[in-house]
């Protein structure tokens, strides 16, 4: 296989198919066709984004609120720059703190005084909050997958098991995270009472809420994938006299894998959406808390900062989805695997 084909296949797999015409153009393959494709796959979206920004800035300046006028795209971009600058400044302060501590430590050691390490306790920056959010959503997502995949396999394998669980699934599936959260928070404070907790309670409450809301797509898709194994493949298993365990691991799971990953991808999407609401109420120091704090604080930058958060949430959600789609294409046998 040529390098070009490999590059194109790789781009397709990570969901950057719109770069494919550029690669083809660079290698001089049918320039006119590529130009038309680029115009369509890049030109049109750019046009739409431009129209959106224009409409936004025109409408924004005409609306007055109690905390000043609605910020336009430029104000929001400036605010994003400020958040980055804040982050840099905070990191510099932190580095300076630890440097000071090092010299102090040496001095204490010289004077023979006992030394106790101290941690920097500055406020979390915007990037720390993003990181917290990502950690929380992954914790919830892993928890949800650990519950949903095995349950889904059981549902798919046994009609009776599915019939028994189905009413519960249908009832709990549409419940909002805002309804789960108070219950989860009360339960977490009642049950998670370690003297030296490894995780914050707010983190656990948010993660559990994310898990509760995001396990359903995985559960349902896993059950569907397992239940719809090609009967011919099951006949192969029967002729070879595979044991029940071997049937599950060698026939059922591999053939259900594409649908399981479809479920996981949907679950991660739902989890990310739910997370922001959960963090707002649970006060988990992530993006949700950032939005809530900005709303409470009501300064002239409030709206711009929340809008930065909105775009951040959107872009991260998009990146997570691309990532899952890439993993999905790795395990799926109906499209080309990475090494072929």
């Amino acid at each position: 296989m040529s390098n070009k084909v490999r590059v194109i296949r790789g781009l397709d797999m990570v969901g950057l198919g719109l770069l494919v015409p550029f690669v083809k153009l660079a290698t001089g393959e049918a320039p006119r066709t590529q130009a038309r494709e680029i115009l369509q796959s890049v030109g049109l979206p750019v046009l739409a984004i431009g129209a959106f920004l224009l409409a936004w800035s025109l409408l924004a300046s005409s609306v007055e609120t109690s905390i000043g006028s609605v910020p336009g795209p430029i104000a929001v971009a400036t605010e994003a720059g400020n958040l980055v600058a804040d982050h840099r400044a905070e990191r510099a302060k932190e580095a300076a703190f630890y440097e000071r501590m090092e010299t102090l430590k040496l001095k204490y050691a010289e004077e023979g005084k006992p030394w106790k390490d101290r941690r920097y306790s500055g406020k979390p920056t915007y990037f720390d909050q993003i990181l917290t959010s990502l950690k929380t959503v992954f914790a919830g997502f892993v928890l949800a997958s650990l519950i949903a995949v095995p349950l889904g396999i059981l549902c798919g394998l046994s009609d009776r098991f599915y019939a028994a669980l189905n009413p519960l699934i249908q009832v709990f599936k549409p419940v909002s995270p805002l309804a789960w959260l108070p219950i989860v928070m009360i339960l977490v404070s009642a049950l998670y009472t370690s003297a030296d907790p490894m995780f914050e309670k707010s983190f656990i409450s948010s993660a559990v809420t994310v898990a509760l809301c995001s396990l359903w797509p995985t559960l349902v898709n896993t059950a569907l994938g397992v239940a719809s194994v090609d009967p011919d493949h099951m006949n192969v298993a029967r002729v070879l006299k595979l044991s029940q365990m071997e049937r599950v691991f060698k026939i059922v799971l591999p053939s259900a894998l594409p649908l399981i990953f479809t479920g996981l991808r949907l679950s991660l999407g739902v989890g990310w959406m739910v997370l922001i609401a959960a963090e707002m109420l649970a006060q988990n120091p992530g993006l949700g808390k950032f939005v809530w704090d900005m709303f409470q604080n009501g300064s002239s930058q409030t709206l711009a900062q929340i809008m930065v958060a909105v775009f951040t949430i959107g872009l991260i959600g998009f990146a997570l989805d691309r990532m899952m789609s890439f993993v999905q294409s790795l395990v799926s046998f109906d499209v080309a695997p990475a090494k072929a």
């Binding site: 090609d230 011919d232 006949n235 029967r238 002729v239 070879l240 006299k241």
Partner: peptide, 20 residues
């Protein structure tokens, strides 16, 4: 007694496992 490997079957639609 049911299917078994002593009677090998070649299926009409091949029935190959696509992930292998």
């Amino acid at each position: 007694d049911g299917p078994g490997p002593d009677r090998g079957v070649v299926f009409q639609n091949y029935s190959l496992l696509p992930w292998l």
